[in-house]
């Protein structure tokens, strides 16, 4: 009995150690992905390229430094077994990558594309880390919250067109996700996110609505008023 239990003990020790390492890697990914997202929010009318360039550079660091650590830990059945341990980090990473990509190209970065970008991290002999569909979708759900912030910010920055574009994009995502949310692995988690997402969508729509309805009541030179606005907004 003792022999058998020392075997179980070492199994449990290894598993717990690994789980701890994965949790740590996941936390680092979350933290640094958040920084990237904040960087994207610093975007203004004139510094777009600059800001995005820096964000992409930071993102590359996240991938090479932190995602690679996660990749090295996870093998075979670990992807699902330890999912709870790494899922938050991966979701945040998906959020950051897709946000960056949307600002640059105006489209949604596919899961396949993200996974393809991760492939070089793992060595070819082992199974590569593949982000799973539920984690990707949960990340996309969070993305809409960031896009809402971005849209509101862009409206105040005078980039109406961009805000409109975000609005259409987020609506589309919400529409698609309504079909998918109920059949997801852990649909309960997604349900709460869907509620938040609807709120985000409506916040953007309301902001666009206000501009649309009342914009004409304030005639005057565009630039002059924007500078006036800028002052008000910062206050």
């Amino acid at each position: 009995m003792k022999d058998a239990f020392s075997k179980y003990a070492s199994y449990l020790n290894d598993l717990n150690d690994k789980r701890e390492r994965v949790v740590k890697a996941s936390r680092d990914i979350t933290m640094n992905s958040k920084k990237v997202i904040f960087q994207v929010h610093r975007m203004g009318k004139h510094n777009k390229e600059q800001v995005l360039e820096k964000a992409e550079k930071d993102l590359a660091v996240v991938m090479n430094q932190y995602m690679s650590r996660l990749v090295k830990e996870l093998q075979g059945t670990d992807f699902w077994k330890l999912r709870r341990a790494y899922s938050p980090g991966v979701q945040e990473y998906v959020e950051a990558v897709t946000l960056c990509n949307f600002c640059k190209t105006g489209s949604l970065l596919n899961l396949d594309e993200i996974n393809a970008s991760l492939r070089p991290l793992s060595d070819p002999s082992t199974e590569p880390l593949q982000i799973n569909v539920p984690d990707y979708l949960l990340g996309i759900a969070d993305l809409t919250g960031e896009l809402m912030r971005l849209a509101i910010g862009r409206i105040s920055g005078g980039e109406l067109e961009f805000a409109q574009k975000i609005c259409r994009f987020v609506r589309e995502i919400y529409r698609e996700l309504t079909l998918i949310a109920p059949i997801m692995d852990d649909s309960w988690d997604m349900k709460t996110k869907m509620d938040t997402m609807l709120q985000s969508v409506m916040k953007i729509e309301n902001a666009c609505f206000s501009v649309h309805v009342r914009g004409s009541e304030f005639p005057g030179s565009e630039d002059a008023n924007f500078s006036l606005l800028g002052g008000l907004e910062i206050e």
């Binding site: 409206i155 109406l160 902001a207 649309h212 005057g220 565009e222």
Partner: peptide, 28 residues
């Protein structure tokens, strides 16, 4: 859901020229 009404302050004084209108209409 009442909490949705979020009107950022700047929206109230947001200016728009007719050109804005057309651009928005077209995008819609």
């Amino acid at each position: 859901r009442k909490t949705l009404v979020l009107l950022p302050r700047y929206v109230v004084v947001f200016p728009a020229k007719p050109s804005h209108f057309t651009s928005m209409a077209s995008s819609e």
